Simulated scan of single mutants.
Amino acid sequence: MPEFQIRKDHFLTNRLIETPETEQIPAIVEGEVVVKIDRFSFTANNITYAAAGDQLGYWQFFPPSGENTTDWGVIPVWGFADVVESRAEGIPVGERLFGYFPPASYLKMLPVGVSEQRLIDGAPHRSTLPPGYNSYSRVAAEPGYDSSMDNERMLLWPLHITSFCLWDALQEKDWYGARQVVILSASSKTSIGLAYALDADPDAPPVIAVTSERNLDFVGKLGLYRQCVSYDDLAAIDADVPTVIVDMSGNGEVLGRLHSRLDDNMMFCINVGLTHWDEAAPGEGVNKQRSEFFFAPGHIQKRMKEWGPAGFASRSSTFMRETTLKCRSWLRLKDVEGLDGLAGVYPDVCEGRVAPDEGIIVKL
């Protein structure tokens, strides 16, 4: 099976590379394992990895195979894989892992920090990258592991862990003194996860959803927002109320208009995603002094130090279970076969044409 690659300077351009390296199980030395990727999710979040690939190091996780790779990169994905070769003590063939993988057949790993439920890929080229992305769950050892939830887990976990961290960060800052929360790109699954958290929190301010005209009906039917407005109707938002913005869109023009409208009542803006990556240039009117990029892995590390790994896992896992069950009322899973199938749906993901209630699962 080939490896899916994209042009780092033009995300829409993609290719499938087939070489002996991608087709054959890689040779390994003592201490290494090879996993065969079984399935993974693919969402707008993966395009965010590409958009921030140079700034945050996402291109470094999985160097592209083949020749003439200078301008090409491999977008990381979240999914499940099975160990097919092992020369690492305590990691048997057949072990199933959940974590960060390339959209490809195989991945060679160097397990370190191995515990009953977790291992770290200690490959040298990953040593300086965010630790959370190098950690893999040994799912068979998880209490209550339910394989029937694998698809929802790989689709929602990478998104809703950010939702959980955003909610926690907003609480910690006492909502930045705001009396309303405005979420841009409110139809995204990360936004919906945050909205579930805020809706269940009696201390949270009311939430306003901003989304595209075509997604207004879907967002409104979720029943999570006090008000739903389109990008063209920002004047409907009460500018006299102190406001904190959570921006999942990265649309500089919309953000500039909203900052200007709120003026001094724009208490703070948390920049998270780039669902509108092609409109991500800074917009006129953006208050940069009251804006900050939110990096979920950094917040996770902070809370793990303060709460301990077990404490963080307990709190976040409870949240994830609850939001996943809530999402079942509207989420439709779409199975795509192989990397050829991924190549077929990739333009729709890249250009934001995937319906908000749809989740793409790629089976290899």
Rank of each mutant, 00 (worst) to 15 (best):
L156I: 10
E85M: 13
W157I: 01
E116L: 14
R96V: 13
I91K: 00
S148H: 09
R118Y: 03
D150T: 10
L97K: 04
G132R: 03
F101G: 02
A141W: 11
D150Y: 04
N151R: 05
S135P: 01
K108W: 03
H125W: 15
L110G: 03
L155E: 06
A140F: 11
I120G: 01
I120Q: 01
N134M: 11
K108Q: 12
S135V: 12
S135H: 07
Q117F: 10
V139C: 09
D146N: 10
A88Q: 02
M154W: 05
L155Y: 11
M109I: 08
Y106P: 01
I91F: 06
S127R: 14
R96W: 08
T128G: 14
R153W: 08
L129P: 08
G90F: 08
S148M: 08
A140K: 03
A104F: 08
P158E: 06
P124L: 14
R138E: 03
G99K: 00
V93C: 10
Y100L: 12
A140Q: 07
R153K: 13
W157P: 00
S115W: 07
P158V: 03
E95F: 07
L159Q: 11
F98K: 00
M154F: 12
L159K: 05
W157Y: 13
R153D: 05
L155F: 14
M109N: 05
Y136R: 04
V93H: 08
N134W: 03
Y145F: 14
F98W: 10
L156Q: 04
S86Y: 06
P103G: 07
P124G: 11
R87I: 14
S135Y: 05
H160L: 15
V112Q: 09
D146A: 06
A123S: 14
L107P: 00
S115K: 11
P130L: 15
S147M: 02
I91C: 08
E116Y: 13
V112C: 12
G99M: 09
P103D: 00
L159W: 06
V84G: 04
G144H: 12
G94I: 03
L119T: 00
D121A: 03
G144A: 13
H160F: 15
V139Y: 05
R126Q: 15
P124I: 10
P124W: 14
R153G: 10
P158K: 02
A123I: 01
V112N: 02
S135Q: 12
L97N: 05
P111Y: 04
F98Y: 14
A141H: 14
S147Y: 03
D150A: 12
S127P: 09
P143E: 02
G113T: 07
E152W: 12
S137W: 06
S86W: 04
F101T: 01
V139D: 09
K108V: 05
